[in-house]
Design a protein around this nucleic acid. Sequence first.
RNA 1: GCGCCAGUAGCUCAGCUGGAUAGAGCAACGGACUUCUAAUCCGUAGGCCGGGGGUUCGAAUCCCUCCUGGCGCGCCA
Length: 554
Amino acid sequence: MIKNDIRSVLKQALENCYQQGALTSGEFPAEIQLEVPKNPEHGDYATNLAMMLARSEGKAPRRIAEVLAESLRADALFDAVEIAGPGFINFRLAVGYWAKVLHHIYAEQEQFGRSQVGAGVKVQVEFVSANPTGPLHIGHGRGAVVGDALAAILAAAGFDVQREYYINDAGNQVQTLGRSILLRLRELQGKVIDFPEDGYQAAYVTELAEGLRQEQGELADLNEEEAISRCTRFGVDQILKWIDTDLKAFGIHFDNWYSEQSLYDRDMVEQELGRLKEKGLTYEEDDALWLRTTEFGDDKNRVLIKSDGSYTYFASDVAYHLEKFDRGFDRVIDVWGADHHGYIPRMKAMLKGFGLPAAALEVLLIQMVNLLRDGQPFVMGKRSGNFITLREVIDEVGRDACRFFFLMRRCDSQLDFDLELAKQNSSDNPVYYVQYAHARICSINRNAAAVGMEQPTLAQFDFSYLTLAEEIALIRQLSRFPEAIEGAALHYEPHRLVFYLQDLAALLHSYYNRHRVLDEDAQVTSARLYLVNAVRIVLANALGLLGVSAPEQM
RNA sequence: GCGCCAGUAGCUCAGCUGGAUAGAGCAACGGACUUCUAAUCCGUAGGCCGGGGGUUCGAAUCCCUCCUGGCGCGCCA
């Protein structure tokens, strides 16, 4: 990648300066910072290296920059090396470099943009993990898309990625579901029931009970506890099928579905808690077993086993997470709803107490989604069952728009999701803006083919016909795609790719409006076709990582 | 009361580990379709980056404090 090339050139220049005595401190910054200047007049890349060295060298930044620049100007990588502002060194890449970028894209095709920064690191992304007590709603959708896109981006950056869904199929919530189903079943049988307030009121519970009707005879023979257990199992299985179906409609698949109940079935909770005990991290008090999380940054200690002998939810979660590391993951990423943020300190404390590095667990908090229709908030009540399911939203606005909207914002800021806006086929809708750029290029290709113009090959491509500022700007943006993926991966920020895409699409539309690709001059046409098809490849690659389609025609 | 997240143009939001003149879309206003799809483009206007202090060559970004909004603070899951 170009940034690394520049870095090594800089490092070499610095070494030269030290050897020649032009600079004396002998200091090498841990990482040489390279940035893309906001103002294009400041070149393609810039470094603040001279400013960083100012203190140890005891010289003015601009003088240090001058010394470094002298050594850098000889390098063939650059057309220009300039000193500017308080001591920035600005680089303008040599023209020949841009031709190489295009060749590189053609050589790599759908692989272009991938890197190896994450090579050898095994990472798990756990996301959605919604309780199997009801259909997915809109909030789950955001977490689902963010987790899915992040996993794809991490994989593109070379990480070894696994997508996992944790099924909370043990404990009170699913018991309550089972009880609710049983009650509805009895109601269907004509019995008078007293439905509890903390039961699941929504209509789908009755739907599930309907599904059990054929077995009602059998169920009647069971005692209450066994009947509830049967209802629970049926309900959970059925709801998980719904969830899986909805996720598939959203283009999301998991490598692994991990059952909480299986932790108990395999005595994993007992075993993992035993390991915590051995490390002296637990103590007994008031007939309960506690974990000393306060010693590692939590504000209070946490109960693992209640005084009645049952495990807390935290206990199984501890076991679950410890087992993730047993499974060999170097890094574990959890995608949670922001309302669970209070849970992070105890989880991190537990891992820290266990001797795992703080960075081993990364929790991505997904902020709330405010559903709007024509600018008016859509109020949803959870218990009442008055909510919009994810499926309904996907069916209404479409998978592409839905995914794109969820990815448009940084995930730790709240998101306004306007159903009408997401549906509009207009300039208000950023999804189409990007997709249209792709479709336009495909359209140009069809027109080129219609007049017998062939797609240029590497051998036919003549870079000297690409002389316009807009053309160089496009290639510059293309060259930054690998950096965009790497940044999105290392910072766990899929939205960066959305912004990258919008910038690239904007450059393409602007170019399209100002200049014709299919020109009178065959040579010019050929070179431009080569360029726009490189753009097409990158648009498709980026959209692919986000799980949004790249249509050939709109 | 304590903690987490947020506060940037009228609205919705970017701003990468502190960098050069704070950006984009929408809305507003003015333009561009006999020309590869106008789902597009070009231009104008719009800002004490919530307030106040500090750190330094340099702060929207880091620290302190206050204000506002959202969400959490169970031997619930």
